[in-house]
Amino acid sequence: MARLDINSVSKSFGAARPADALSLTVEPGEIVAVFGPSGSGKTVLLRMIAGMFEPDDGDIQVGGRSIVGAAPERRGIGMAFQNFALFPHMSARDNIASGLRAKAAGDVATRVAAISKLLKIEHVLGHTPRELSNGQKQRTALARALIGNPEVLLLDDPLRNVDAKLRYEMRLELPSLLRRGTAAVLYVTQDYREAMAIADRIAVLIGGRLVQVATPDEIYAQPASVAVARLFGDPTINLAEVVPFAEHGALCARVSGAMVGLGSADVDALERECWLGVRPEDLVVSSSPGEGAIPAKILAITPMHEKAVLLLRLADGTEWLAALPPEAPRGAADDAVFIGFAADAAMLFDRATGQKIGLSHRRQAA
């Protein structure tokens, strides 16, 4: 078993800097998802670990041993790519075995049989890549990465090119499959649902910088910044410009002219220009006013099977989204309604920096 340590690693290509002083530790048997928008530096990080690029600064260690400058085959790394990268002239069996043969490792046939059975592709081992479905190609590429029992496993968005049904199935299967080994796993994805379903921790990468590393629940419930909050959730988080103030010992704010309570007063947020963030699923929509209710008008309703999404316009023109369970009353387009939320559903972010402030009582996401 070996731990992966990334210590202050940076990489530049001319004026572009896709990796800026990145530091991250992945324990043996742990799955860490590297999540971020396109161009944030995710693949560059994996390629530095694999040896395709060398870092300009910093160090990368596997089991306490620096691998910077080491040949790729001597790094103890297994890697699967989003485009599968299978040898087109080889059968699935030979593709899986190619890494072992390069190392002259043990009984190749036995190990290929074992890993292909685990991944349910033993019936297509004689097929070439052009005869395989995308799902079978993905499993073949994963088998090739796993068969050598690597100390570190790098998965570069491996489910991106498979259909929705298989992607859902693999989100369920992959965590238990990966935890059967002891590899430290880095899993790159642009899909926040995938990151939350598969990973023990998520490392959020934006503009070449790691902006938050935490468990999926912690990142969803306690995002470090507005940028992180916007990346997680569908529909995305609602935001309003507010300047919180104290009222009878409680923190309050005005949203579209209505005064809403935010729980116990926090001196860090008082009289400070903030963004108020509320998740769409935390909004309550009613036809009658109540304490702290915000008047709004329904612009549109989109049924989404497990929920209905309401597009709402507040009195000041701000548009918010509410995600309601199917059984909840929802009204109709053009209806006047009132929306509210519990104090523990609110998040405050500094408007100048985007960083989260106060409101440490925010509950964990289900």
Rank of each mutant, 00 (worst) to 15 (best):
289 P>G: 02
249 G>F: 13
189 T>P: 13
171 R>G: 05
304 M>Q: 13
213 V>Q: 05
140 T>D: 01
346 A>L: 10
59 D>S: 10
53 F>V: 15
342 A>Y: 07
43 T>C: 06
208 G>H: 10
270 L>P: 12
112 V>W: 07
30 E>Q: 12
262 L>N: 00
32 V>H: 07
327 E>H: 12
346 A>M: 06
66 S>V: 14
230 R>T: 12
202 I>L: 06
364 Q>T: 08
135 G>Q: 08
54 E>L: 11
360 S>I: 14
1 M>K: 13
127 H>A: 11
167 R>I: 09
11 K>M: 04
147 I>F: 12
154 L>R: 11
20 D>Q: 12
297 K>S: 05
93 R>G: 04
329 P>Q: 01
80 A>R: 06
80 A>G: 03
186 L>D: 00
30 E>K: 10
44 V>W: 07
102 A>T: 09
321 L>T: 09
253 A>K: 06
226 V>R: 10
19 A>Y: 07
88 P>Q: 02
72 P>V: 10
146 L>H: 06
89 H>M: 11
169 E>L: 14
177 L>Y: 04
278 V>F: 14
27 E>H: 09
309 V>K: 07
352 A>Y: 08
213 V>P: 08
47 R>W: 12
113 A>T: 03
12 S>M: 09
279 R>V: 13
236 T>D: 00
267 V>W: 09
226 V>Y: 04
215 T>P: 06
145 A>S: 11
321 L>P: 05
240 A>C: 06
36 G>E: 07
228 V>G: 00
75 R>F: 10
186 L>I: 10
46 L>E: 00
343 A>W: 13
87 F>M: 11
